[in-house]
Write a protein that binds this DNA or RNA. Structure first.
Lengths: 298, 298
DNA sequence: GATCCTTATACTCAAAGTGAGTATATAAAA
DNA sequence: TTTTATATACTCACTTTGAGTATAAGGATC
């Protein structure tokens, strides 16, 4: 196998925490870029490299790390090609102040339309007209838009955040699209941008995390050691951007052997709630649930 | 951002097809390595690069392509670091002969224990004793082994193929583990090996594909244009390595609006069956099903 | 042509799971 | 003591799922 020409590799991290029922992402440069840095030699693995880099530059310890996606820049400079390897990491946001221009940002600042817990009219008043204009005379575009944004009675699938962002990009409705030379089809959809394609990477992370939540216990990385069922519900609501049915959520959680009673109770306004913690076994195994297929008896 | 030192990048492909109710993977060197090659300049994207490379070297056109994982070699040579970007691609196996030492291999040749459609005793007679030996005095290892291989009444989760392979590797029960310097804990588990870490990459592909099948219509890339419900069932059974309940499978498929009647019928040894095809809309959208969470009414 | 083998297709039934809602309990604050 | 806010328990109809049985329609065999 021939070696091919040398290229440069960069690691990009989406570090997520949930605090005060709000998902947050770690940023540099006052909220305008994700943490990123070159892959250096001396790292045992890519994960180790990423962990080291983020901890050194932000002073933050990372929990669970998972790879998101790798992509190559189409030769942006004559200095040679570069590829970016992107990661999702979960952290417990400690409230220690971060140095310099490092900060935690509410991720819905970049994707306001993804938060359906609060009533807003972005989709009705801005997304829909923009996409209609873009779809003019093209029914295939129209059904795609409707399906992704839950327009004509279609239901909203929270884990399709990436596809929604990509559609807006394609339609020239986000700022970075025109920056890259696409024609606009209406007013820009509200939402802060990020450097390079970092907003797209963040959308990838949101999609991945939201998809995982449904069938794998990932949230425990984001929770305090002890928490109430409502805390857990609020955390999942924050990530998925949807509100959940309290009684049914409770039943769902209790039917699995995910949590154990800590013996303690919460204090605050209202009746005290039991404090739970994740069972040690669950933390160890990171069980991946099986898929649902109609198996036959052997 | 500093550029970091230059490295070499390689693309590795797991190309999957299903023929005669058997999943197959495209190999080079008479079934001993996956197709791999250097990332070259002039490719618009990584996917385009892969597609081009595979088509040129194997003469096979690729269908759906999806990224699997990227990993870095821990500085294996002083010639500089190299990273491998792995892909899963689905193809329709045409029966055209392939040139040279290129061939399709039944993937269960490398993972015989993953095929549970046929009765075999590999797990009972070889895996279990080996893992027991490795787990001696370590109950945590024992429960992990039991859960992954469905030992003490635990149920088999077909999409955990990668975790199973990694466990066997850790326990030194596959050949490449001792090659990499791990102690063995019993007789090697049957199954052909592949060059470098290609067997591990194949396990990753199997896990990914099996996990997808449950909640996304991916199989159509692997089927002929028209097929019977039994054909479809056999294809999914081949991939998951499990047999399905016929009537319930049929109900599941029919309840979704996935297929359409082609008007034709199959001929063969029993009553002729309706021939279906995938609906054009499904092919276009590649719908991703939402996750199951107890949503609250707005 | 009657019979058998094979596969397709239709239906049934009970158990489990899910969406939605109501009722009661227990704390702190007014 | 009443209000307010939350926790927890329970109900009920409806849907989905696992498992199985019954009937239909071809080709092959006698």
């Amino acid at each position: 196998m021939t070696p091919g020409e040398p290229i440069h590799a960069e690691l990009i991290a989406v570090v997520v925490a949930v605090t005060d029922a709000q998902p947050r992402v770690l940023t540099l440069l006052d909220g305008s870029a994700l943490p990123a840095g070159p892959l250096e030699s001396g790292h045992r693995s890519l994960q180790a490299g990423l962990r080291h880099w983020v901890e050194r530059h932000t002073g933050h310890r990372l929990g669970h790390i998972e790879q998101l996606y790798t992509f190559a820049d189409p030769d942006r400079s004559r200095a040679g090609r570069s590829i970016s390897i992107c990661y999702l990491a979960l952290a417990n946001e400690t409230r220690t102040p971060l140095g310099g221009r490092v900060s935690w940002q509410d991720w819905y600042r970049f994707f306001p339309w993804e938060d359906r817990r609060v009533a807003h009219t972005i989709i009705e008043t801005i997304v829909k007209p923009g996409l209609s204009h873009w779809s003019a005379g093209n029914p295939e575009r129209l059904t795609r838009a409707a399906r992704l944004f839950g327009l004509d009675g279609e239901d909203w699938q929270e884990d399709r955040a990436l596809a929604r962002y990509e559609l807006l990009y394609e339609a020239g409705l986000v700022r970075e699209a025109t920056r890259d030379g696409r024609p606009a089809h209406g007013e820009f959809v509200p939402g802060a941008t990020l450097a390079a394609d970092h907003r797209r990477i963040l959308a990838t992370a949101i999609s991945r995390l939201r998809a995982r939540i449904g069938y794998r216990p990932v949230v425990f990385e984001l929770m305090a050691e002890q928490f109430t069922l409502l805390d857990l519900q609020r955390c999942i609501e924050a990530l998925t951007g949807q509100t959940l049915h309290k009684a049914n959520f409770r039943r769902l959680i209790e039917s699995q052997t995910l949590l154990e009673d800590s013996g303690n109770f919460s204090s605050g306004s209202g009746r005290p709630a039991k404090l739970y913690r994740f069972r040690a076994e669950v933390l160890a195994e990171r069980a991946e649930a099986g898929t649902r297929l109609p198996l036959a008896r052997p």
